[in-house]
Structure formats: structure tokens, C-alpha cells
Lab assay of single mutants.
Amino acid sequence: TLFEALYDYEARTEDDLSFHKGEKFQILNSSEGDWWEARSLTTGETGYIPSIYLAPV
């Protein structure tokens, strides 16, 4: 399942991933609670993103 960003997000740590509204992600690991490891389909970068900023596509 792909997810789309509902809002912009600016990374706060080196493990976080910055993204823009409308960016799409492949989720790599969603077992860490509210922060999911994801790969951006726009940039190819991976990192942790807040799941509350996402909606399934």
C-alpha cells in the first residue's frame, strides 16, 4: 500500500525524512508506533516519518 503526505514536514533529527504535501511513500516498517520507516517515491530517500501526516492512496 502506498501512502501520500497530507502536509509538509521538516525533519527534526537525522533519522527523520523531510517531505512535501502530496509526496508518495512506500512504507518499509510500520511496527515502531506512530513513526514509520518509509521510502519517498519522489526522492528515493528513506527515513522516519510521522504516520499521522499520511493517508493511504
Rank of each mutant, 00 (worst) to 15 (best):
A11V: 02
A5M: 01
L2K: 05
K24N: 06
D15F: 15
D15K: 15
F19W: 02
D16Q: 15
T43W: 02
G44P: 00
F25G: 00
R39T: 14
S40G: 03
L41C: 09
K21V: 09
S40P: 01
D8Q: 05
T1K: 13
S51T: 07
D8P: 07
S30R: 13
T13K: 14
S31Q: 12
K24H: 10
D16E: 15
S51R: 13
E45C: 09
E23D: 14
N29I: 06
G22F: 05
S18A: 07
G33K: 13
V57R: 02
N29E: 07
Q26F: 14
K21E: 05
T42I: 10
L54C: 04
A11S: 13
F25K: 00
E45G: 08
S30H: 11
T13Q: 13
L6N: 04
E14M: 10
P56S: 07
R39V: 14
T46Y: 08
Y48I: 11
Y9D: 01
S40N: 12
T43A: 02
L2R: 05
G44W: 07
T13F: 15
S18D: 05
A55G: 09
I27L: 07
D15A: 13
E37A: 07
E23S: 04
G22S: 04
F19A: 06
K21I: 08
A5F: 01
S18C: 03
N29T: 08
S30C: 10
H20V: 14
E14T: 12
W35P: 08
A11E: 03
L28D: 03
N29P: 05
D8Y: 05
N29S: 11
P50W: 14
G33T: 13
Y48R: 15
Y7F: 13
S51V: 11
I52T: 14
S30V: 11
F19N: 00
K21D: 01
T43V: 01
L6I: 11
S40F: 03
A5L: 05
Y9V: 03
K24Y: 12
Y48G: 04
A38Y: 04
H20C: 07
F3D: 00
Y53C: 08
F25H: 00
E10P: 05
Y9H: 06
R12K: 13
G44R: 04
I52H: 14
S31D: 11
W35Y: 13
S40E: 03
E4V: 13
S40C: 06
S31H: 10
F19G: 01
T42V: 12
T46S: 09
T13C: 13
D15T: 12
D8S: 09
G33E: 13
L41F: 08
G33I: 11
R12I: 12
Q26I: 15
S51C: 09
L41G: 03
Y48F: 14
L28Q: 04
L6F: 04
V57H: 06
R12A: 11
S40M: 05
D16C: 10
T13E: 09
V57S: 09
L2Q: 06
S40R: 12
Y9I: 03
Y7V: 12
Y48D: 02
F25W: 02
A5S: 06
E32A: 12
T46N: 05
T13S: 14
A55W: 10
E45Y: 10
T1F: 12
E4G: 03
E14R: 09
L6V: 08
N29L: 06
D15Y: 15
Y48A: 06
L54V: 12
L6E: 04
D34Y: 15
F25N: 00
E45F: 11
T43S: 10
E32C: 11
T13G: 15
A55Q: 12
S18Y: 02
E32Q: 13
I27P: 02
T1S: 11
L54F: 11
P50F: 11
T46C: 08
T43L: 02
I27F: 03
S40A: 06
K24C: 08
E14A: 12
D15P: 05
E32H: 15
G33S: 14
E45D: 09
T46L: 08
R12G: 09
F19T: 04
I52P: 06
L41Y: 07
H20M: 11
E14F: 09
S30P: 08
Q26D: 07
I27H: 01
E14N: 12
A5G: 03
L17I: 12
G33Y: 10
Q26M: 14
F25P: 00
T46D: 03
A38N: 00
S31F: 10
Y53D: 02
I52M: 13
T1R: 12
I27N: 01
L54H: 00
A38L: 04
S51M: 11
S18W: 03
L6R: 06
W36I: 05
T1W: 13
R12E: 12
Y48Q: 09
P56D: 05
G33V: 12
L28N: 04
S30E: 09
L17K: 03
Y48S: 07
I49V: 15
E37K: 11
R39W: 08
F19K: 00
E10N: 11
R39A: 07
W35V: 09
A11D: 02
A11F: 03
A55T: 14
F25A: 00
E32W: 11
L6T: 06
T46H: 08
L54W: 01
G47V: 05
S30N: 12
E23W: 07
D34H: 09
Q26G: 02
G22V: 00
I52F: 12
P56M: 09
F3K: 01
P56V: 09
H20Y: 11
Y53Q: 04
S18L: 01
F25D: 00
Y7Q: 12
G22R: 02
E45R: 14
W35C: 07
R39E: 08
I49L: 07
E10G: 06
P56H: 06
I49G: 01
Y53W: 08
D15S: 15
G44H: 07
N29G: 10
T13P: 05
S51F: 09
A38H: 01
L28R: 03
L41R: 02
E32R: 14
L6K: 08
A11I: 02
D34K: 08
T1G: 12
S40Y: 02
K21S: 06
Y7A: 12
T43C: 02
E10R: 09
L28T: 06
G22H: 06
A38C: 09
L54Q: 01
Y9K: 04
K21L: 05
A38I: 06
P56N: 05
P50S: 10
Q26K: 09
G33F: 10
P56F: 07
G47S: 03
E14C: 08
L54A: 03
L2I: 15
D34G: 11
A55Y: 09
W35K: 11
D16M: 14
E45N: 13
I52G: 14
Y48K: 14
A55N: 07
S31W: 10
L54P: 00
E4W: 09
L2E: 07
Y7K: 09
L17H: 03
H20W: 08
Y53R: 03
Y7N: 08
K21T: 07
R12D: 09
T46Q: 11
P50H: 15
K21M: 08
F25M: 03
E4T: 09
Q26W: 14
F25E: 00
K24L: 15
G44C: 08
Y9A: 02
T43I: 01
I49W: 01
L17T: 03
L17V: 06
A38T: 02
E23A: 05
Y48P: 03
G33L: 13
E10K: 11
G22C: 05
K21G: 04
G47F: 05
E4C: 08
E45M: 15
R12T: 13
F3V: 05
E10A: 11
W36P: 00
A55I: 15
S31K: 11
E37Y: 15
S30Q: 12
K24W: 15
H20I: 12
G22P: 00
E37Q: 12
Y7P: 00
E37M: 15
E23Y: 04
R12C: 11
F25I: 02
G22N: 05
R39Q: 12
G22Q: 03
I49F: 02
G47W: 04
E4A: 07
V57Q: 05
A5I: 01
D34F: 13
G33R: 13
P56Q: 10
S40Q: 06
L2F: 12
T13M: 14
D8H: 06
